[in-house]
């Protein structure tokens, strides 16, 4: 099934998304990868606020190439999500509701997704040039010194992704590996 969804996401909308569904996302999303996650975790440990209000938001695990003159952003595809697994359950418990990346997640992340009624999307890995066309705005909002790993606020229009882990805990990758998917 194909869904057109807009951010911020609500739990009601997420409840209609099922593993294997395709979505087109429109609205604001935030980028963060390894180094930004580490800094956010450190901030939380020191009792400081996060650089943006993550409640109801989507984090896109992505570090772009520099934008050429006249471009909004460079190549902008997903990075491997499991490297963020260590930090993710805490962010989900604080209100993060969606993630876009690629690849498998840990059991702890799955549990946190179910516990919080959240969702994990995959974007196609290695399609960064194509995906850049769905990004119509980009600005660095925190940790600028991290370069490509800085936190960016992106405005996306019809950004294509696939529901890999839904709020019920169904895992599309697991179904594919077991040969039980209805996807093919």
């Amino acid at each position: 099934m194909e869904h057109e969804i807009t951010t911020p996401l609500t739990k009601d909308v997420i409840a209609t998304l099922h593993a294997g569904d395709t979505v087109r996302i429109t609205g604001t999303i935030y980028t963060a990868r390894d180094a930004a996650h580490k800094r956010m975790a450190e901030a939380l440990q020191e009792g400081k606020p996060l650089p943006f209000d993550i409640r109801g938001q989507i984090i896109y695990y992505m570090g772009p190439t520099p934008a050429k003159p006249g471009h909004v952003i460079g190549s902008a595809g997903p990075t491997t999500a499991s490297r963020m697994d260590k930090y993710t359950p805490q962010l989900l418990d604080l209100g993060l509701i969606g993630m876009i990346g690629k690849g498998k997640r840990s059991q702890a992340v799955k549990d946190a997704i179910v516990r919080n009624g959240a969702v994990y999307f995959a974007a196609i890995g290695g399609a960064g040039a194509l995906l850049s066309h769905s990004i119509v705005g980009a600005k660095v909002i925190a940790y600028e010194d991290l370069g490509t790993e800085a936190i960016r606020e992106l405005t996306v229009k019809d950004f294509p992704a696939i529901v890999v882990m839904d709020a019920e805990g169904t895992d599309l990758y697991k179904k594919v590996a077991e040969g039980t998917t209805s996807c093919d």
Binding site: S75, G126, S132
Partner: peptide, 12 residues
């Protein structure tokens, strides 16, 4: 797209 716009195929 990468070829036409001369941008990287992948961001990595």
């Amino acid at each position: 797209i990468a070829g036409k716009e001369q941008i990287p195929i992948c961001q990595d």
